[in-house]
Write a protein that binds this DNA or RNA. Structure first.
Lengths: 191, 191
DNA sequence: CGACACCTATCTAGTAGTAGATAGGCATCG
DNA sequence: CGATGCCTATCTACTACTAGATAGGTGTCG
């Protein structure tokens, strides 16, 4: 059953990039991990830049799907925001990895324009989803003192991405929890 | 006057690491930039890990100095927090670079334990300084609705670091400003 | 003073190893 | 047959790092 090699490549590559960054991973790492030669990777992804683009698109789709589920199941704005925080908390994996797009943002200089655009789109989508969640929260009263929803959204995205970074530096989830504590407190029972 | 080569090396290396990350810069880049051979760099810094450690220590000292000045000159807690935000905003350089420690946190996996410790210390110092500033703000009433100072501090550090990252991805300072807008609003005239 | 010794800061030339990428071949299977 | 998927072998460019030499400054001591 060799048909799922491409999927395995994406799976492993995502993990490695999230742990070591774009410039910190190589085709050699990837090849060894799934048991083929480096040359064979080029059959599936002509260049490293093609692989990373596929990585971002796949990741963005997966996260978008998760957030769509959250929109469907989250009864209040507060529940949605709490779910969003949980997504980033899980992605941190106890301090051993970052959200793919956090990792790639730091290596922005090495990325092709197409990848950079995909990265921006990911951030825009996150802010848009959060804006809607904060708008809902304004309406349902589930979050205390909601400011302009778009501003709350931009702040929340930056907060969770920064919280991941601080957690990564100390290989622990604790700094993440400390950073989002006040926001969670505003969410009441949902937090 | 060759005596300042070491200083030039640190200066250039800091800029390159902040633009391209730890794994995205090489002795070759550095050598070319200041006009010596790569071998000569090893005279000043035996290994790349020694260079990066020196980089962090120098950076941490400089920032600590700046914050100490801010503590002396900032009349209120709000003014101090506003100054802190400005430090990170300047470090972003219109989206072309990151705070050294933000950049290195993303490449944590490639760093030696000593460098990692220095990175953690940098974050701890930032939170400690911010905690004091929020305590002052509680006392002088210069910031609206201050929560537990230590929690406000952790959130603020994460916010500005994340805001930098989002700005970096779109090579612009605008996402940074959007992310800190609500915090700034809380600072009143000082923001 | 001047000879010897050491130090600083750089050089040229090279190491072994790794990077991503390419060309062409060889199975397997519908 | 011919596409698919992987291989071997190779390439060029670059990685951090080392060895050994050199030019020039500084200090010490007879």
């Amino acid at each position: 059953m060799p048909a799922d090699t491409k999927a395995k490549l994406l799976e492993s590559a995502e993990r490695i990039v999230r742990e070591r960054g774009y410039n910190g991973f190589s085709y050699a790492d990837l090849a060894q991990e799934i048991g083929i030669r480096t040359a064979s990777i080029h059959y599936h992804f002509r260049a490293k830049s093609d692989l990373v683009l596929a990585l971002i698109e796949r990741y963005a789709e997966r996260i978008a799907g998760g957030l769509a589920d959250l929109s469907r199941t989250g009864p209040t704005g507060a529940h949605r925001i709490a779910g969003y925080i949980a997504v980033y908390r899980d992605a941190l994996r106890e301090g051993s990895s970052l959200c793919l797009c956090v990792s790639l943002s730091a290596d922005a200089e090495s990325l092709e324009p197409t990848a950079l655009s995909a990265l921006e789109a990911f951030h825009r989508a996150g802010v848009a989803w959060l804006t809607e969640a904060f708008e809902l929260a304004t309406a349902d009263g589930s979050i205390e003192r909601v400011g302009v929803p778009a501003s709350e959204a931009a702040a929340t995205l930056a907060l969770v991405e920064g919280a991941q970074l601080v957690g990564r530096a100390s290989r622990s989830v604790e700094p993440f929890d400390a950073a989002v504590l006040l926001l969670r407190a505003r969410l009441g029972d949902a937090g």
